[in-house]
Amino acid sequence: MRVARFLGGRLIGMIIVLLIITFITYAIFYVLPSNPAQLSCGRPCTPDRLAQAKTFMGYDHPWWQQFLQYTRGIFFGRTFGAGPAAIDCSAPCFGYSFRLSTPVTQLILDRIPVTFSIAIGAAILWLVLGVSTGVISALRRGTAIDRLLMSISMAGVSAPAYLVGLLGILLFGFTLNMVPIGGYVPLTESPVDWLWHLILPWCVLAFINAAIYTRLTRGQMLEVMTEDYIRTARAKGLSETRTIGRHALRNVLIPVATVFGLDLGGLLGGAVITEKVFSMQGLGALLLDAVGNLDLPVIVGVTLFSAFVIILANFVVDVSYGVLDPRARTGTR
């Protein structure tokens, strides 16, 4: 019963948060010194044609009414224009892009495979890499290996992702001709090409992010190793592998999982810079393109979607944190 109430409360909270984000996005872009209808008026533009375009696109109402129409569309769908040329956008309607002649929901669905391919592949890679090097570093504390791994990870933490990415493209793409210089091939089209195009972005993201996990894991590991139950386990004569595998690692992974959930959520919402650097047409690229073209429905739709993913990840982390670590149940978060 308490669990149900907790979950219900969080869900309502999520919806409120998403509405606030939609509202802010709408308000900000409405006050921009621009006029989306003017951009699609054609050349030469006359006042009559401008007014017609505005009415058709639904920009002839005050912005708060537009916001309400938009929100309504998400739950009940909406129709643009009238007669045989009318555009029907069924629920959940996140708006319609007149520039791309496509409903925003469709645009988002089209881009999800790209963004998710980048994010999930990179996340698995950096988690494995980060945790294993962290554990090795902690176990070999003070040795040359430890110092080497720590130095590399310090460099990884300090290097900007776009710089590493661009240098990677130059080295492996142009100079060595080993991997494609960008682009994306759907998994369904050719799994090999899919993998081939994703290797470099995965490695770059993994290098940057693994560094954080290496350091986090090592720190946690060192702390846990001094705890009583590890000493007890050792004293009981359990093998080192078992001690570490069964007892230490489990406790180390709780904070790692927390950070991981949030990082993955952020990446699933669209990685603007990574997608730009690797010319991948995911959600981040869609958003950047929409901002450049003042395509308001797309901006709001994508923002809403990424916010949803991030907040969902946050929520999952909170809930699983409670499950993984009973001590955390008393306090929130």
Binding site: C41, R43, P44, D48, R49, Q52, A53, F56, G83, A85
Partner: peptide, 27 residues
């Protein structure tokens, strides 16, 4: 001439006779 399809080069729109109030074939 339809507002749904605005955005193109429209020089003919101001030159063709009686086209000022025309809103395309869809109506």
């Amino acid at each position: 001439f339809a507002p749904e399809l605005s955005g193109g080069l429209g020089y003919h729109k101001s030159l063709l006779a009686g086209a000022d109030s025309y809103k395309g074939p869809y109506s």
